[in-house]
Write a protein that binds this DNA or RNA. Structure first.
Lengths: 110, 110
DNA sequence: AATTATTATCGTAATATTGCAATCAATAAA
DNA sequence: TTTATTGATTGCAATATTACGATAATAATT
C-alpha cells in the first residue's frame, strides 16, 4: 500500500486534502512567501532564494502549479510564476467555515 | 533522500507546512468533517464512519493530534476526540493574510 | 476471573515523496 | 551559428506515508 484510497472519499474531501497536501512542504510554503514578497514578477530567481537544487525547485513548482496555487507565463526565455488567488480563496473559505461552525458549537466538549 | 530538509527553512514555514500536511489526506479531512458534524462528542465511532480499518484510522487520528488539530480525553474506556480551534485559527490567519496581500497587489502580473 | 469493547502499537508490504546529478529543450545573446 | 541561460525531464537512491493484520493494553461488563 502507500496509495491513498481517494475513491473512498467525497470530491470535496479529496480536493481539500490535495490542496493542503500541496502546501505540506516548507519549500512550497517558502515559494508562496517569496511570490507574495515580490512586486515585479520577474521570477526565476526563486531557485536562488531557496536552499535547494534547481530540479528540486522545479518539481515543487510543478506541484504548486498542478494544485492550482500558481500560474506561469513565458517571459522572454524565463518563466514568470504568480500566485493564483482562486485556490487560496478556496482554502480560506474552508477554514472560515470550520471556524464559524466551531464558534456555534462553543466548545461543548473535551 | 525522501527526507524533508526542514532545517533549511524558517520555523514559520515549517509550521504552516506541517499543519497543511496533516490535512493533506482525505481521511483526515473526513475526520475533521465528522467531528464538526457531531454535537455530542461520544466519538470512537469515527472508525465506523470511515471506509478504513481501525489501525489506519488510529494512525490518522494520531497525526491530527500531533499536528494539534484535535485533542482527546479518556471517557470511560473510550476516547473522545474534539477539534482544537487553535490550529484552525492559525491556518485561517495564514490564508487571510495571503488573501489580504494579494488584494493589495491587485494582480499586477501574469 | 473471564469476556467484551475500545483504542494503540508493532510489523510489514506497497506506494509516494524528496532531492539531486545528468541531461534535454527552448530561447536569447554573442 | 555558436554559446549561454533558463527551466523541464529523467533516473535513481533514500526516506516517508499509507494501509492493514496481528497483537497488546486498558476499562467496563458479566
Amino acid at each position: 500500500m502507500g496509495a491513498t484510497k481517494t475513491d473512498l472519499f467525497t470530491d470535496k474531501q479529496n480536493t481539500v486534502a490535495s490542496l493542503a497536501k500541496a502546501l505540506g512542504h516548507p519549500a512550497r510554503v517558502a515559494i508562496i512567501d517569496y511570490l507574495l514578497s515580490v512586486d515585479t514578477c520577474i521570477c526565476g530567481d526563486i531557485v536562488n532564494k531557496l536552499p535547494l537544487a534547481q530540479p528540486t525547485v522545479s518539481q515543487h513548482l510543478r506541484e504548486l502549479k498542478n494544485a492550482g496555487f500558481i500560474k506561469g507565463t513565458i517571459e522572454g526565455n524565463a518563466i514568470c510564476y504568480c500566485i493564483d488567488e482562486k485556490m487560496i480563496g478556496r482554502l480560506q473559505a474552508y477554514f472560515d467555515n470550520i471556524a464559524a461552525r466551531l464558534e456555534k458549537k462553543k466548545n461543548n466538549c473535551c
